[in-house]
Design a binder for these strands. Structure first.
Lengths: 233, 233
DNA sequence: CGTATTCTTGACTTATATCAATGTCGGTGG
DNA sequence: CCACCGACATTGATATAAGTCAAGAATACG
């Protein structure tokens, strides 16, 4: 697939890169359109490539030995993903599935050392990404250890609004299809509980739901819910 | 403090390193004895050094904004820790506190680039460590999302036995002082629940408790508990 | 020894899962 | 084009795991 240079140059990761440098980089890359519901790679398969998300939205999931699924993270445009090999893993630890129609850019894994050597900014950025990833994981562990479901859902939705929100007249729209089940898998609860919580919020005018849709109408109030120190009343 | 070469050479990380190379490395390192209960560094303070644990056992904790504490991980001898700067963080994300009397080896953070450049094995090892760290975090998220407390505690204790176990006549001793509260903070529960679970296990002869003590008497049975697919009976 | 941690155990409460039924949306094919 | 089907969502009733509250016992320590 033909690679669109302008899209790439708009990403913070590449905006200050020379044209010839960029060309060298893209030379070995291949672009791919991933329709909604299809996977980029699957848990356990050999890590042959690492990727950059150009467009769309991916969910990275893991399945536990006994068949339960969780969503490890959401990949947003501009994010590097699938660089298992950089962490000395031979295979992908999770499955990357397109939540919305997406476009990825992929490089063969063996190019990674080369990649970072010639592009120190990328090396730094990759490290940063991994560091953030680790922090996010710890944040989630903290939340799951100490907060009740409602607060966790509030946090999760606020993070989504920040990373995948699009302003609309009446609020912030989560800009890709997301189900109650998805939110449950991100917060460690069941779709039933998520549904109840969202219904309650909708009653109070904080959000507006819909089939695979979510609109945050009152982020400030959600923020408050998320931070609220538990108090008896 | 004088640095003991033989201890360092016994670590897998350094065992194949040349003597002169090792000398160069140790030249800038400083060793420190950390009495039980004291900290190596604290959450939020500037990341001036990165460390290697030579001896003892550390707990890395984080405190949430509202004052709850969790144990992020346990540092075992031979582990690198506190390399926040490598992940482009200016400060330590957690507090490292000695669970038992410990000895650390520390280098100034600015030496990190140098460190990895001259020691590719270390660079690889560091990457591996971070990758493992991330995986462990995801494993914990998976566990907290999908498993009941008893199974999580079983998993946690088995991992401790693996990483910090010492064979004894009657079982595997967790080789550093660990309280019920600690286990609770590692599994995302309360010390009460941990206490009840351990009492129950003690009744069945699986473990033997004690003040800040833990002996695993029947690892196989614990394993079974940990893996057990939930079934109604 | 007495004082302070750490641990245990019981009684009670509650958040959240589970079970079950029904409703609603949106795409597909007749 | 509309009816139907499957996926997604809602909502009530009930169960239960685990938290909270409370008291006391055991152990270590100065």
């Amino acid at each position: 697939m033909k690679i669109d240079r302008t899209v790439i140059k708009s990403l913070p990761l590449f905006d200050r890169m020379q044209d010839d440098e960029l060309d060298r980089l893209l030379q070995h890359a291949s672009s791919r359109r991933v329709p909604q519901g299809e996977t980029v790679f699957e848990q356990g398969s050999p890590a042959l490539s690492f990727y950059l998300l150009l467009h769309g939205r991916l969910k990275v999931t893991q399945v536990t030995p006994d068949g339960q699924q969780i969503i490890v993270r959401v990949v947003h445009p501009g994010d590097l993903f699938g660089f298992a090999k950089a962490l000395q893993r031979p295979d992908y630890p999770g499955t990357a599935i397109a939540a919305a129609e997406s476009v990825t850019l992929g490089w063969p894994t063996d190019l990674w050392p080369n990649f970072v050597e010639h592009n120190p900014r990328l090396a730094v950025s990759a490290m940063q990404t991994i560091g953030q990833r680790l922090e996010e994981a710890h944040m989630r562990i903290r939340e799951m250890s100490t907060q009740e479901v409602e607060r966790r859902v509030a946090h999760t939705i606020l993070r989504l609004a920040r990373k995948a929100g699009r302003r609309e007249e009446t609020g912030i729209r989560i800009d890709f299809p997301i189900s109650r089940q998805d939110i449950a898998e991100m917060t460690g609860t069941t779709l039933h509980t998520v549904s109840r919580i969202l219904s309650a919020w909708e009653g109070k005018g904080l959000v507006e739901g819909g089939r695979q849709k979510l609109l945050v109408k009152d982020a400030a109030a959600l923020e408050e819910l998320a931070e609220a120190v538990k108090e008896r009343n």
